[in-house]
Amino acid sequence: MPERKRDGAGMDAYDEEPEALGGPAGPAGARRAGGPGTSGEDTGLEGPGPTGTGTEDTGGADAPDPAPRAGLAALSPRYRLVAGGALAVVAAVAAVHLGMVFLSLAPANTVSKRHAKAVEGWVYPEFEQNWKLFAPNPLQQNVAVQVRAQIRGEGGDLRTTGWTDLSAEDGAAIDGNLLPSHTQQNELRRAWDFLGTTHGTDNRPVGVRGALSEQYVRRIVVLRLRRDEDLDRAGTIERVQVRSRTVNVPPPAWSREKVSTSPAYRVLPWWTVTGDETEAGAR
């Protein structure tokens, strides 16, 4: 299965198609780095140029009216051939690149399905993108991630805490904030999305990424729990349990729609916390 490497950096898009990749013709080998990035005064190496021309930015400002011979025309035939060839290659690479990106963004279609491998090979990992911004439909539910823990006290007693709503904490941190941090807006939200897309409905992890996402969520919740000083002082966290609480956003007052606003829970099994997770954020 062609896995998405980045899992849609999007902020939203909840009824996203599982896989909308494809690719056109164009052997993967046709890809070029685009040639050397030579440049003018901005090179970091000042080449005064034989003509003392350090100033292309004036673009022949004070040249007489008939445009000065520039570009290809100013080159000798041999050099013109090289430049012409380079121009053709650069134009071709740019065109193929845009075609590949287009096919990776478009819904799966005749062309992109046939050439899925080539498109993936070209676009991943550095040109991956997802622009289904609040599309096809915006998310219409508030998903809150909550956690509780079993704590072994100094005396060896085992205590189970109540549920802590970590998303509510994020929400409170975002309220009235002109510059929300990624740690408040993206970290937990996207970690939970990641876990959702790599787990079956039976909460079992799928593939390597499923295991990674579990560890990730575990590290986040342990880090967040340990910020609570009382809890941290009470003892060591032995096990944690995570659940999500999903509530529909109530429809607008001016609409006649009705949706249930009772929460739906997804409860994961208890996880044992290892030493690796408790070091998260412990500098």
């Binding site: 609040f134 915006p138 998310l139 929400g171 975002i174 009235g176 002109l178 807006q185 939200r189 956003v249």
Partner: peptide, 10 residues
């Protein structure tokens, strides 16, 4: 809807 998501409503 986005205006009423807890993560996007400062």
């Amino acid at each position: 809807y986005p205006l009423h998501l807890d993560y996007f409503s400062p």
